[in-house]
Amino acid sequence: MFTRDMTVSDIQRLQAEAAGPDVALVMDEDTFRAFYDRTARSVWAYLSRLTGDPHLADDLLQDVYYRFLRAGASYESEAHRRNSLFRIATNLARDAYRRHRGRPLHVSEDIEPVASGEDVAGRVQRQTDLSRAMVHLKPRERAMLWLAYAEGSSHREIADALGVKPGSVKLLLFRARRRLAGLLKGGGA
């Protein structure tokens, strides 16, 4: 789903090219692997909901980590590092949105629930409803709601990731939540 399947020669070429001296990146490979394993699923989910397009999220994910590695910033903590990652993801999703402006946001209808058994149809329905409702929200509203209720981010973390004043998050979040709740209840907001 990410990129085409790699052939043996592709891998050999990449290995040969990567075998040279490492260029300066923000962390070493082992640290990066661990950090990626901890964060990539969340970042992908965020990008997917922000753009409404899982395939675009696949592409953007790689860019997010590349930019993160090249940022050359020093991070005080894991949370700081994670916030920075989400800020990069937000900016890339915003750029992608601007590039695709005028084209309606894609609503993924091919949702395959991972859970089996109880309430599968209900889950699919709720996800489809969410996808359709998110289309009517502004990108910043989508991002804010996702960070608040999927990621459980604090107002300060949301402000950091979205580049808004911490003081205004409360009001913006209230409005976005109001709007989405209205849409999910079928009120249209």
Partner: peptide, 30 residues
């Protein structure tokens, strides 16, 4: 709804290997 969607999305995604991302970052940086 978000919580449920988040869990579904996290479980559904097939991520590329971290090594591949690392290689590409190296190549792009170079």
């Amino acid at each position: 709804v978000f919580e449920e969607d988040f869990e579904e999305a996290r479980a559904r995604v097939k991520l590329p290997d971290a090594g591949l991302i690392w290689w590409r970052a190296q190549l792009q940086a170079r």
